[in-house]
């Protein structure tokens, strides 16, 4: 077994070179390289965690924004409904008012016209009596030669009209 047979001759060399080389490994690789590798991993983990948090935050923002948008849309819709209903009600009211006004005006016009017609017909009938009286006076004068006064003619016409 060389490990034991050679121990006296080789132990110093073994220990020396092991300490030298393992020491170099420890200082160069263990203390020099490992922390850098670990910091790379840590930085990556941190970045991933940060990105995930940012994504989560963005998702929350989007949700909140969508919620706000929905609420706004609902409010707008309600507002629009209110406005249309008010407009509809106003339209109905306006048309009713206008209709009532027009009705009143029409009634006025009709009654005024009726009054005018009545006056005209009165005037016309009065005219007829006068003309009839003059015509009767002229007819009497032509037929009998008797002169009658317009008053007598008027009385006769009136009586005839009333009878006729």
């Amino acid at each position: 077994m060389p490990q034991i047979a050679q121990i006296a001759a080789t132990y110093a060399s073994q220990i020396f070179w092991l300490l030298l080389i393992f020491g170099a490994v420890f200082f160069v690789i263990g203390l020099g390289m490992v922390p850098k590798v670990q910091s790379t991993v840590d930085a990556r983990d941190k970045q991933i965690a940060g990105d995930l948090a940012a994504a989560e935050q963005a998702r929350k923002d989007a949700d909140a924004r969508e919620e706000a948008y929905r609420a706004k849309t609902d409010a707008n819709r309600a507002e629009a409904l209110k406005v249309t209903q008010a407009a509809k009600a106003k339209g109905i009211f306006d048309s009713e008012t206008a209709l009532a006004k027009a009705d009143a005006e029409i009634a006025d016009t009709v009654s005024a016209a009726e009054a005018r017609i009545k006056a005209a017909s009165d005037a016309a009938s009065a005219g007829i009596e006068t003309i009839a009286a003059e015509a009767a006076q002229a007819m009497v004068a032509r037929l009998s030669g008797a002169n009658i006064t317009p008053a007598q003619a008027a009385i006769a016409v009136k009586a005839a009209l009333a009878n006729g």
């Binding site: 001759a9 110093a12 060399s13 073994q14 020396f16 070179w17 092991l18 080389i21 393992f22 490994v25």
Partner: peptide, 17 residues
Amino acid sequence: GHNIAFTNSALWMAITA
């Protein structure tokens, strides 16, 4: 007084490193 010859063992330690 202790011999520290560079041996095949030391060589393979170096190769490993």
